[in-house]
Design a protein around this nucleic acid. Structure first.
Length: 257
DNA sequence: ATGGTGGGTCGCCCA
């Protein structure tokens, strides 16, 4: 089972790039973030034509996540529990072939400190509580998406430049570590020890040609999902395309049961 | 110290 995650920075602006990549990579499940459109405006037909079932949570202009699957997605959940007032479209989770899979778009949190950073930390606390609940029930799961978290210094081109950034602040990384310490496996880092394994490059200042990136798109696996881990790879190709997203896809491969 | 780029949407917000 091949699961891809990709922050596309607008589903509409990126539609041809996404569908071309899907035809070539052919993942069984695709987790999209920042679709930047309302649920009804999501170009679902383009994905259905490629054989995907489509679950979408959108909103006007900002955020928005989708989960595409070659087999039907069951028991679709459209929000992260724990804050009823939260209207932002950042989470969709469903069961695909017995595995609970989520597409998440964790808040950026800048500027920190401030309301946005407080929201980011609350969101991480909610994700922690939700993951812990699934672990207690022994639900096998995969949480994939744009975490807006730089886990370690080797995951950013300049740790000094990001010292006060919401993606790299100690409180942010502590919450990410707390997730791992529940017993989750961060798939890329469990298998690869390299630096420069970036998944995001800013549009500005020639970040892409200079390889000044961040590793902020991740897969976290429950123990049962980690038992099935074959590989996790970053496909840099789409970042070099014309009209690219600022993120590139990360691909997780799990053994079939 | 500032502005650099890009998307959504239509004056700015967000990243």
């Amino acid at each position: 089972m091949k699961i891809a995650t990709w922050n596309v920075n607008s589903a509409k602006a990126r539609l041809a790039l996404i569908t071309d990549w899907l035809r070539a990579a052919s993942p069984d499940v695709v987790l999209l973030q920042e679709i930047k459109c309302e649920t009804a405006a999501f170009p679902r037909e383009a994905f259905e034509e490629l054989g995907y079932h489509v679950a979408v949570v959108g909103q006007k202009a900002y955020n928005g996540v989708a989960l595409l699957s070659k087999t039907p997605a069951e028991e679709v959940m459209t929000r992260l529990p724990g804050e009823e007032e939260d209207e932002q479209a950042r989470y969709v989770e469903a069961t695909v072939q017995g595995l609970r899979i989520a597409s998440l778009y964790l808040p950026n949190g800048n500027p920190a400190p401030g309301d946005k950073y407080a929201y980011k930390l609350r969101w991480m606390d909610r994700l922690y509580a939700h993951a812990r609940g699934m672990l207690e029930r022994e639900v096998p799961f995969v949480l994939g998406g744009d975490y807006n978290v730089i886990p370690e210094a080797r995951d950013v081109f300049s740790p000094a430049a990001f010292a006060r950034d919401a993606l790299f602040l100690p409180q942010t990384r502590a919450r990410f570590r707390a997730l791992l310490n529940l017993g989750l496996t961060e798939a890329y880092r469990a298998l690869h020890d390299d630096d420069h394994a970036y998944t995001f490059w800013d549009y500005q200042a020639g970040s892409w040609p200079r390889d000044l990136g961040l590793r902020i798109d991740h897969f976290l696996l429950s123990p049962q999902a980690a038992d099935r881990l074959i590989d996790c790879t970053i496909d840099r190709r789409p970042r070099g395309a014309e009209k690219a997203s600022d993120h590139t896809p990360v691909v997780l491969e799990l053994r079939d049961r």
